[in-house]
Design a protein around this nucleic acid. Structure first.
Length: 207
DNA sequence: TGCCAGGCCCTCTTTAGGGCCTT
């Protein structure tokens, strides 16, 4: 059963992983998430998890998450079971959501859990409603929108916090530039799936 | 043996190729 389009709870999540593809054996090593209710952060989730094998030196360098840190972490199954509880009843947002969705799907399938929310993507939305931005990487959009940050990148909770702020900015853009206040979650999904050239027309019709 | 992600978008497109974005 899907979440109501009127649901006000949105969870913004970010995975750090051993690589790019669960189909190639890659696993999650960290999950970070913030839960928003009516635009305000009401809860946070951040856990390291051990994938069952050593991560590469590239991933250690890229994320700052070392094999020593993961040695003390719980198994993916334990952490993802807790995270499945955390996201129940909430729609989901991520930057380049197709990436995080495939890891969420893979890790939850491995423990026989599922979720009832639907995904929206701040990357696809940015390419449509911030077309003047020259790059839509999360870090570049943080600078472009002058989003407050503590200088930490490529850690799950820090990236989830910045993605949450980007999501709220996108809501502001819809409000101030298109006159759409309190858009349904489904509208944010539609923006990401609407052809780039047609977005302005679609939004003018909605407003 | 050799290769090795995948979804989305744009264009010099659609019988395709390449860039962007995520780790």
């Amino acid at each position: 059963m899907s979440i109501s389009p009127f649901a006000h709870t949105v969870t913004i999540l970010d995975f750090e992983t051993t690589g790019l593809s669960p189909n190639q054996g890659d696993r999650a090593i960290e999950i970070g998430a913030v839960k928003l209710e009516n635009g305000h952060i009401v809860d946070r989730f951040q856990r390291l998890m051990t994938p069952g094998f050593r991560v590469s030196s590239f991933i250690e360098s890229y994320t700052g998450i070392t094999n020593n840190m993961l040695r003390e972490a719980d198994d993916c199954a334990v952490v993802m079971n807790e995270f499945a509880d955390f996201i129940q009843g909430s729609n989901l947002v991520a930057h380049n959501a197709s990436f995080d969705k495939k890891f969420l799907d893979a890790e939850l399938e491995a423990i026989g859990r599922s979720y009832d929310g639907e995904f929206a993507c701040t990357l696809l939305n940015s390419r449509r409603i911030s077309q003047q931005a020259t790059s839509h990487k999360l870090g570049d959009l943080v600078r472009y929108h002058q989003i407050d940050n503590d200088g930490v990148f490529h850690r799950a909770l820090a990236d989830a916090e910045m993605t949450a702020k980007l999501w709220l900015i996108q809501l502001d853009i819809l409000n101030y530039e298109y006159g759409i206040a309190l858009p349904r979650f489904s509208l944010l999904q539609r923006i990401g799936k609407t052809p780039k050239a047609s977005v302005a027309k679609m939004l003018s019709e909605v407003s």
